[in-house]
């Protein structure tokens, strides 16, 4: 097992280098450059060439890549073209905000989807099952930006239960309740799509398992139905859900872009999107590499979790 993990970690290195080369190439191929933004809203064209030279963009692309790469090996992700700040400190500042939101959304999705998914499978074809199907269907159908706006209009504007946007009220940043209060709507918005997806997979995974012989045996032994479902079926039923969770984490980070925008949440998702529109190359590279590292790490963790849930799965 440890050899397997070692090998996987080593494979991450060429994977990440590959990702960085693809990213850099796509960025270079994209038309327009940072000078278009740095020239200002009134467009001062006389400044364009000078800006490119000042930013080192007059060098050939491979040279620029190697410069970026060797600096990165020393922990230097460069400075934002737009603000001059070190990219690393920008990411360190904002990644925790995104992780808080993503984890809260993830926790919400799991907390709702697994119990209701199990319930739907046990009460197969009942009213509750159909209701859950409708909820799941709606959950995957509504785009998060739409859902976010609707939640704001209903729960913040009309009912006044939650703040409209932001991470905390000014002067109350250290008040944990104030922060949680601000976290609810964005986390539910972001978690909704995943919630729906996980619920569908929990339901179908459980349905399949519940039809198997060993469950019939367990039932025949006269075990309490709750015991059969939770002890015997759930573990196996969750395998497919775990796969989906691993695959959906990048989607959760992607969805965070829109949620962060709607709720004025200062996370890396918005940072990345703005950086793309502004052609702020060092930030684009930095953020995407950070997301790539998170993604490959999570995939590795998912593979390890398989072995814990299902001992039949073993790596060597």
């Amino acid at each position: 097992m440890s050899r397997y993990i070692m090998r996987r970690v080593l494979i991450m290195i060429p994977t990440l280098i590959g990702v960085s080369i693809i990213l850099f190439s796509v960025m270079m191929i994209a038309p327009g450059g940072p000078e278009a933004v740095l020239m200002g809203e009134d467009i001062a064209p006389e400044a364009a060439a000078r800006i490119r030279a000042n930013l080192g963009l007059d060098q050939p692309a491979p040279v620029q890549y190697l410069r970026w790469f060797s600096a990165m090996l020393q922990g230097d992700l460069g400075n934002s073209f737009r603000t001059g700040e070190p990219v690393l400190s920008i990411i360190v500042d904002r990644l925790p905000n995104s992780l808080t939101l993503t984890l809260a959304a993830f926790a919400f999705a799991l907390a709702v989807s697994i119990p209701f998914g199990v319930l739907a499978s046990v009460k197969h074809n009942s009213f509750i099952d159909k209701l859950m199907s409708v909820v799941a269907f709606l959950g995957v159908s509504f785009p998060s930006f739409w859902l976010g706006i609707v939640f704001i209009l209903i729960f913040a504007d009309q009912l006044g239960w939650f703040p409209v946007s932001g991470m905390a009220t000014y002067g109350m940043e250290r008040d944990i309740l104030n922060r949680l209060h601000h976290l609810v709507l964005p986390a539910v918005t972001l978690g909704s799509v995943q919630m729906a997806t996980y619920m569908r997979f929990t339901r179908s995974g459980m349905l399949e398992v519940l039809r198997q012989d060993y469950i019939r045996t367990a039932n025949a032994k006269g075990l309490h139905p709750r015991h059969v479902v939770l002890r015997h079926a759930l573990r196996n039923g969750l395998i497919s859900v775990i796969t989906v969770i691993g695959l959906s984490l990048p989607a959760l980070i992607g969805g965070a872009v829109l949620t962060e925008t709607i709720f004025a949440w200062p996370g890396v998702g918005r940072l990345a999107v703005n950086a793309v529109f502004q052609r702020d190359y060092p930030i684009i590279m930095g953020v995407n590499m950070a997301v790539a590292v998170v993604t490959v790490t999570v995939n590795l963790l998912v593979d390890i979790v398989y072995t814990i849930i299902d001992p039949r799965i073993a790596y060597d």
Partner: peptide
């Protein structure tokens, strides 16, 4: 306090609700 709220609909809602 200069608050950044990227979505205009949300910004208008904040204005109406006093945020």
């Amino acid at each position: 306090i200069y608050r950044v709220i990227p979505d205009q609909t949300v910004l208008v809602t904040e204005l109406r609700s006093g945020g």
